[in-house]
């Protein structure tokens, strides 16, 4: 079949895909290719000329401790948030899924509140709440005598990451809970009836009956949460700007700072920032491929799984 023939036969199909493909082409596929192209150039500012320098950017990146620290911090962030977020939200979802609980909707809405709040708002509110000067959290800790001096949660290099991780989990727990609630909806009512007949309740019902049924969703929720945890730019930007002394600078902050030169007096290095993005993206893609591979394998054994 010639190309023209193909286009004619499937003209409706292609026509229907056109808007989506156009949008994706412009804002997803082209930018990825462009970023790889820029990564091989020295380019200081949007108005400056790009100078091809091959793999120099990558070679410098390999020896840049600030880059690797940011890289490591993104991973620490991922490991620090995702398991915590998933287990707490699962427990909450199971409790809130109880049909007898009349106020369930109210509780859900309250827990979901941080999710619908713009991240910038969350960041700024918590900056104040955690402030060592008059901040409510420190006032409380001082009042009940847990600490004798206010803690500078966001201002000390030791406590900044745990604090940001805590706020992040608080902010996004609601969405993970909704995913779990949706998964729990797929458990048929007769399972609960059968369990009641066998007098199986509480944690035994949760662990041995419900959990195995919703297990296929685990991977999908894990993937969504992991991707989200890598896009943490807005929260950290609005809370700490990556400080103090770069101690909360994750990958995206590194890229933003290098590309748009928010430090006074430094030159924007767009090519270098693009290279950092490419390297980080390549590692993520590798991890995704690994995970995707295992998903496919699981899928063959557990029908109905989604990922």
């Amino acid at each position: 079949m010639s190309i023209l023939e193909t286009l004619r036969v499937y003209r409706f199909h292609y026509f229907m895909m056109l808007p989506g493909l156009l949008l994706a082409g412009l804002f997803v596929f082209y930018p990825i290719l462009a970023a790889i192209f820029y990564a091989m150039h020295e380019w200081s500012g949007f108005t400056a000329k790009k100078v091809f320098n091959g793999f120099d950017n990558f070679l410098i990146l390999f020896q840049d401790p600030i880059f690797w620290n940011a890289f490591g911090r993104s991973i620490v962030f991922l490991i620090g948030t995702v398991p915590l977020q998933m287990t707490i939200s699962l427990a909450l979802a199971m409790i809130l899924n109880m049909q007898l609980l009349k106020l369930s909707t109210v509780f859900r809405t309250m827990i979901f509140l941080p999710v619908v709040t713009p991240v910038a708002v969350i960041g700024i509110i918590w900056t104040f709440l955690l402030s060592p000067f008059n901040g409510p959290v420190n006032s409380l800790l001082l009042d009940i005598g847990l600490v004798s001096q206010p803690i500078d949660f966001l201002g000390s290099t030791n406590s900044v990451m745990p604090s940001v991780i805590g706020v992040y989990v608080w902010k996004w727990l609601g969405i993970t809970m909704i995913y779990w609630l949706a998964a729990l909806q797929t458990v048929p009512d007769d399972v609960y009836d059968a369990a009641r007949l066998d007098n199986c309740k509480g944690y035994r019902l949760a662990f041995y009956v419900i959990l195995p049924i919703i297990k296929p969703f685990l991977l999908a929720i894990l993937l969504i949460s992991s991707v989200a945890a890598l896009n943490v730019f807005p929260l950290i930007m609005s809370m700490t700007n990556g400080g103090p002394f770069f101690s909360s600078e994750v990958m995206e902050i590194f890229i933003y700072r290098t590309a748009f030169a928010t430090d006074d007096g430094s030159i924007p290095q767009l090519g270098y920032a693009a290279a950092a993005g490419v390297l980080f993206g390549a590692v993520l893609l590798g991890l995704t491929a690994l995970k995707g591979h295992s998903t496919l394998r699981d899928r063959k054994t557990t029908p109905g799984s989604d990922a």
């Binding site: 412009l26 997803v28 596929f29 462009a34 991707v227 896009n231 933003y256 993005g277 893609l285 995704t288």
Partner: peptide, 18 residues
């Protein structure tokens, strides 16, 4: 499927230029 997991930071420069 391959591009699902590309973070925003990766493409922000070309998107802005575009």
């Amino acid at each position: 499927v391959a591009t699902v997991f590309i973070p925003q930071g990766f493409t922000i420069i070309p998107v802005f230029e575009l």
